[in-house]
Simulated assay, not measured.
Amino acid sequence: MRHAKSDWSAPSLPDHDRALNARGRTAARALGDWMRARGYHPDLALCSTALRTRQTLAGLELDVATRYERQLYNAEPATILSVIKSVQGANCVLVVAHNPGIAWLAQHIVKSRPAHPRFDDYPTGATLVSDFAAPAWSDLTEKSGTVVDFTVPKDL
């Protein structure tokens, strides 16, 4: 999941400290409702330490164990994948991070892309649900996932 829409009204604020705007808070709640309605219940969340990613995760209103990872802040795809590969003991993992890294990873971790018109540009709040046949998170590779679902806040 890419974080929801952030607030740009204070351009002098450090990027790491940018909060969600009203639209982003609404989108986070809608994405959480969408996840619950479809039965997507992660048992671990990996979340960037940036304020907007933490607020997105909180807005989802999920009861989920969370690891806040500084290295997910504006991370390259390889770094995001490395953090995911470090997971042990979780069956379903939610990653809340930033573009362009999260978009590139989403586009390259699945065997085939969903037909959704917004998948390639991966707007704020974009959420990919995919299944992996790998026996452990450490075994994930590019093109190893099967798309289960994909949405963006405007769909909700």
Rank of each mutant, 00 (worst) to 15 (best):
Y68C: 10
L128T: 00
A106K: 05
T141H: 05
T124R: 00
R25S: 10
V110A: 06
T79R: 11
V152M: 04
S6I: 11
D43N: 12
D63N: 15
P153H: 01
S130W: 08
P117L: 12
P123N: 02
A10V: 15
R67G: 01
A78N: 03
R52W: 08
A22G: 11
Y122C: 02
E61H: 14
A126M: 04
V152W: 03
W8R: 07
L140G: 08
V152T: 15
S144Q: 05
G101R: 00
V129I: 15
G32K: 04
C47L: 13
I102A: 03
G89I: 06
S82A: 15
D7I: 08
L20F: 09
Y68A: 08
L20V: 13
S130G: 06
A106P: 04
V95L: 08
E142P: 04
G32R: 03
P123D: 09
V83H: 00
R54S: 10
L156S: 10
R36F: 08
Y122S: 06
T127N: 03
T127V: 13
A97F: 02
I102H: 00
D63A: 15
N21F: 08
T151G: 06
V110F: 10
P114F: 10
A28D: 07
H41I: 12
F132Q: 07
D7T: 13
H108W: 09
G39Y: 10
L60H: 09
P100R: 04
S82D: 10
G32E: 01
G24K: 00
K154D: 14
L62I: 12
P135S: 15
V87K: 07
K154G: 04
L44P: 00
L46Y: 03
L72N: 02
A28V: 11
A50E: 08
D139G: 09
D139F: 07
